[in-house]
Amino acid sequence: MSVRKAIITGGGIGGLTLAGALTRRGIDVTVLERADAVRARGLGFTVWPNATAALHSAGLLDAVRKVAEPITSATLRVNSGRKLTVIDMASWGERVGFPALSVTRPELLTVLADACGADIRFRCEVASVTPQGGVRLTSGEELRADVVVGADGVGSAVRRSLLPAHQNTLDQPMITGWQGVVPRPWLGGIALDMIFGPTGAAGILGLPGDRTYWFLQAPTVRMPTDGSPYTEGWSPVIKELVAATPADSLWRDDIRDRKPVSDWGRGAVTLLGDAAHTIMPNLGQGACLAMEDAAVLAVRLAAAGEATAALRDYEKARFPRVRGMYVNARRAARMQRLSPFVRDGLLSVAPFALSRMFTGPGRPIPGLAPLARKDRRSPPTR
């Protein structure tokens, strides 16, 4: 059976990327989103080349470029300000064929929603799904499609319907993270600064529109009792950015992950992004992997003679990639939490290895060719 209709649960980055990729391949798509509008925290986001390649394959990169800007460089340094290495991101992007982009999540989501061409239904919360492609909403309404894709995040209702309870449990948080956006330009321009400090890692990213995004991580046991960012011992620039962040542009998150499983789909149903594989953010690849998932899945479904075989093929193709990311993100977390004396000494003697650790996950995967002109279809007008 060829795929004519798909239901995607979750209107986040991965779900909307998949919607755009499928509608451009002639598949009718409905996106079910439990919120009442497309919305996200006003935080910064790096679209690594592996994700821009996925957007290109999905036919969405040109739309995203309208709200994003290329990242020109990345500097990795220790808390004192001493540089470990500087990566020319523009040249690297040219070598791998796609740029790294800086954008805010709300602007990225808005563009994807406008460009995807799917029917996005808000205030639709999924209660359960069946392997036969049935979807039941909490309102009691029942829907059906040739395939159902759970892109509904770490607490996925679709995952709970498919997998046993022990495969739905998140690991206990090891790191607390804070993020914020400051309404003023970063002096480095559209560039990324990664800092290894007293409690782990911090980062600063210039955003389009003269804004600056920052993040800061610390072991959960060091979190202040009032929940505010743990800045003790950090460089003055980090402390200044934290202090300058408006309260409504500050976000705290207990960072958790979940060991990926190889068989995350059943029948006509599969998972995508955090619903399938929640990893730690140390590599900046969580949402980027979801975009990769979307591009790979769209290619499989468009060529499918039989839908369930295409879903299992997609899961088989993605598991080694996401398992590797899970392992490497945990390794990066352990490295970041070493004592500064040990960690900074190790990083200083191997700048090439540090650059490779930083850029390696962001290399585009093979096989994400864009739609041929004869196969490309304009998304329907909604």
Rank of each mutant, 00 (worst) to 15 (best):
T17P: 15
V111M: 12
E292A: 06
Q132F: 04
V67C: 00
V154Y: 14
V237S: 10
R144H: 15
T17Y: 05
L338D: 02
C288M: 05
W234Q: 00
V96P: 03
P99C: 03
R312G: 11
L250T: 05
D248T: 13
W264K: 08
G345Q: 06
E315Y: 11
L301V: 03
D36R: 10
L216Q: 01
Q132T: 09
Y230F: 15
I365G: 05
G81L: 07
Q167T: 10
V322S: 01
V149P: 03
L368K: 02
R34K: 04
R323G: 07
R82P: 06
A63M: 13
L108T: 06
G15Y: 00
A369W: 00
P364L: 01
Q179V: 06
L271K: 06
I279G: 06
A145N: 06
S378G: 03
R95T: 15
D114Y: 07
M194R: 04
H166L: 14
G59E: 00
R39Y: 12
T220R: 13
R334G: 03
L338M: 12
G133E: 00
L108H: 04
A53F: 12
Y326G: 01
V299W: 08
W251Y: 03
V221T: 12
A329T: 08
T17N: 11
W214L: 02
A310W: 05
